[in-house]
Computed example of a mutant assay.
Amino acid sequence: MKIGILKEEKKPADKRVALTPDQCKFILEKYPSVEIFVMQSNIRCYSDNLYRNKGVNVVNDLSHCDILLGIKEVPTSSLIAGKIYLFFSHTIKGQKYNRKLLSKMVDLKIQMVDYEVLKDTENKRLIGFGKYAGIVGAYNTFLTYGLKVKKYNLKPAYNCIDKNEMESQLCKIILQKEKIVVTGKGRVGQGINEILNKIKIRKVSKNEFLNNNFNEPIYTHLDYLDYNIRKDEKKSNKSDFYNNPSLYKSSFMKFAKKADIFIAGHYYAEGSPYLFSKKDAKNINFNIKVVGDISCDIDGPVGSTIRSSSIKNPIYGYNPITEKEDDFQKKGVIAVMAVDNLPCELPKNASEDFGNELIKKILPKLLKNTNDILIKNATICKNGLLTKKFNYLEKFIK
């Protein structure tokens, strides 16, 4: 079995990679029948020579490989017919900007296995960059808060050599009695919690957050039923919320009236209530001064997120009165951090974490049988056809 590591070609440049040099060496030693070939790249966070030093072939053509691993979408001009591809295709929601990509993969009889839909028997994702989105997103939120209140400055994560250097900056954070509210319980939430714990901010219950005063910074971590209630006030549960989101309304404002900082790491499903609207942000009792929107749904559930921001320019101000951008340091203006590619700020750490999950959870099944049920369920197209599970995309590619 020949595995090829793709060069990331999508703009802006992405330095991440599916497998690090050390991980490639591990695979070669564990699976003697496997060969790995890495496409030459001057963008990747690991140099070509680091791969060569681990005994990995560095080439300028992957057409002889069976399986091709990447991160972001592959340009249609670079696709190779008949191959098995794994990357984040961003096609399963019928994204218009990737219509040509999906259509071309079907035409070339490519087997497209999307990382996003590699899930376990409980429908939980097995692989992704969510943890590092949470880690960097939480860090950037405190970077933003320091600039907003003009009390401290942190080195941007993308200027740090690695996660260790970034975390060495946390001692510069100056907090007093701030109240922080966090949403999202998945990988993103785990990453957020990791940073909050390193800063040694105490976690409190939602009731304590709403009703008690503290002489120290604290945070509460909310699940979706903590800020969504049924409109008819009947008892709710997860299953009911999943199946009937239109029967619910947001109760997030009770937290927005108490919080100074909001770190949004939730997953937003279409049809669910917005956490807070632009109208809510106009409320005289709305207290949030900084929003770190890791989820980054534009003009969606977080009313102040009117656009995404960039790694080099991560902050903008949202004026609730005008509903337009403004100086984020002005009084009454919400400072918004809404970078939509956060893991790219720590590409080596993020790649290592991703590769470890790939090796542990996906690769054994992929090498044993490319028709394994796990792989099959994540295959969008194969042999010139959309698979049954994704046949709803037929109208999308015509």
Rank of each mutant, 00 (worst) to 15 (best):
N164Q: 14
E165Q: 12
M166L: 13
M166I: 06
E167G: 10
E167T: 08
S168V: 14
S168E: 13
S168M: 15
Q169C: 12
Q169S: 03
L170V: 07
K172N: 11
I173G: 01
I173W: 02
I174E: 15
I174F: 06
I174K: 14
I174S: 12
L175P: 02
L175Q: 01
Q176N: 13
K177T: 10
K177G: 08
E178M: 10
K179Q: 11
K179F: 04
K179S: 05
V181R: 00
V181I: 13
V182I: 12
T183H: 04
T183V: 08
T183G: 05
T183M: 02
T183P: 06
G184S: 08
K185Y: 04
K185A: 11
K185H: 14
K185L: 09
G186L: 01
G186S: 02
G189L: 01
G189P: 02
Q190W: 05
Q190A: 04
Q190Y: 08
G191N: 06
I192Q: 02
N193A: 12
E194G: 04
E194V: 04
L196V: 05
N197M: 08
N197A: 12
N197Y: 11
K198A: 13
I199T: 04
I199F: 07
K200A: 10
I201C: 09
I201W: 07
R202M: 10
R202N: 15
R202I: 15
K203W: 09
K203N: 13
